[in-house]
Amino acid sequence: MLDTLDTLEAIGQDAGLRYAAPEDLTEASALAEASDALKTAIREGNGLALANEFGSRVMQLVQVNLSPGREDEEPEEEGDEPEPSRPTGPDSL
């Protein structure tokens, strides 16, 4: 029997299931034993209901910091232009 994670993976890998309408997906044989949380999530079209099964956790998204003065940067001289990084050419390999 597939549990919720296996079922999500199976839906993600199946062109028929991935784009099925929610009402068809919840009726699909692959989902015969799906949990209530998963069926609700499918009906609602988002993962909020999965918190009932897995708990919820605030996840931070990786973000880049491209502003000047960040911790990894060389201090900039006043009026300095940032150096464009040069692609590695064959002679610098």
């Binding site: 994670l5 993976e9 993962g47 999965l50 897995f54 708990g55 919820s56 996840m59 931070q60 998204l61």
Partner: peptide, 21 residues
Amino acid sequence: VSDNVVEMWLERMHPDVRSLQ
């Protein structure tokens, strides 16, 4: 990763998954 469900999915693939969160 962006979602705790995705992190749990990874845990299926490897016994030692360490979250950076």
